[in-house]
């Protein structure tokens, strides 16, 4: 259960790192290089790096196939965070599509 919680919390941080990348992409930068060298992008990839190691540790106690299923929560968190933090709108089709994707990943992984 502890290892599953690590994977679950990691999905939230993965989604949050995507929000940081999107926030950086939405801003104007002094030059092309600063589109990549700014605190949001650097923090986002630092988080991605930490998540990578956290997942590796979690897989010492959880089967790989369950990892991919738990990882689908990233889609849910990306939708929620992009709605609340980025004010992105999503329609019924996008919501249903994401649910279909999550179902597909679960079918694939648990097969």
């Amino acid at each position: 259960m502890f290892y599953m919680m690590i994977l679950f919390v990691a999905t939230f941080f993965s989604a949050f790192s995507q929000i940081l990348l999107k926030q950086s992409a939405m801003r104007e930068h002094r030059s092309f290089i600063f589109e990549y060298l700014n605190w949001r992008v650097i923090l986002a990839y630092f988080i991605a790096f930490v998540v990578l190691f956290a997942n590796t540790y979690a897989f010492t106690g959880v089967d790989m196939r369950y990892g991919a299923v738990i990882d689908t929560f990233t889609y849910v968190f990306v939708m929620l965070l992009s709605y609340f933090l980025l004010k992105e709108k999503f329609n019924k089709g996008q919501l249903i599509g994401n649910l279909i994707i999550i179902t597909g990943v679960a079918v694939y992984t648990l097969g």
Partner: peptide, 17 residues
């Protein structure tokens, strides 16, 4: 089958955008 479902989901999201 799982991959086909994933692909269907991606198409639904893209067509809804």
């Amino acid at each position: 089958i799982g991959l086909a479902i994933v692909m269907a989901g991606v198409i639904v999201v893209s067509l809804s955008t």
